[in-house]
């Protein structure tokens, strides 16, 4: 699609939207957001880029194949489910690590975080795969 407005806008919007998607992902644990929504936002940003510049250049921006995103996302989710088994807990139970940081802010990191990251990758990968293939093949 040859829209000058879109082409210029998306160049500035893309990093902002990706940043926003990471923000959405991180705040998801305490406020509305999370891996699913964040994955959709990330995919939406690159989809707009695809409309403006075509799938070929969008793929260069992404620099990895969406299929790789899907696979690694699934793997990440699976591994984060398997880690608790090694510690003698049931599959997919949360294992948490408390990281002490100054000023007494609670900061816990656990396997659900990586699970959510897996969801993020899968959702973004699947959506981008749809968009790229649509653009290239139809």
């Amino acid at each position: 699609m040859n829209s000058f407005i879109l082409r210029v806008t998306i160049r500035y919007l893309l990093p902002l939207l990706l940043l926003f998607s990471i923000y959405t992902f991180l705040r998801g644990h305490n406020e509305p957001g999370g891996g699913f929504a964040a994955g959709l936002i990330a995919a939406a940003s690159l989809s707009l880029y695809t409309i403006a510049y075509g799938a070929k250049r969008a793929r260069q921006v992404l620099s990895i194949d969406p299929r790789f995103l899907i696979g690694s996302g699934l793997l990440l989710a699976l591994i984060s489910g398997l880690i608790p088994i090694l510690m003698g807990k049931p599959f997919l139970s949360g294992v948490w690590l408390k990281i002490p940081i100054p000023r007494n802010t609670p900061f816990d990191i656990g396997t659900p975080f990586f699970f959510d990251l897996g969801v993020f990758f899968v959702v973004a990968g699947v959506t981008l795969m749809f968009v790229f293939i649509f653009e290239e093949e139809i």
């Binding site: 644990h29 305490n30 509305p32 957001g33 999370g34 949360g94 816990d108 659900p112």
Partner: peptide
């Protein structure tokens, strides 16, 4: 679950 967003 160490999170305040129940849905997530």
């Amino acid at each position: 679950g160490h999170g305040r967003n129940v849905v997530n």
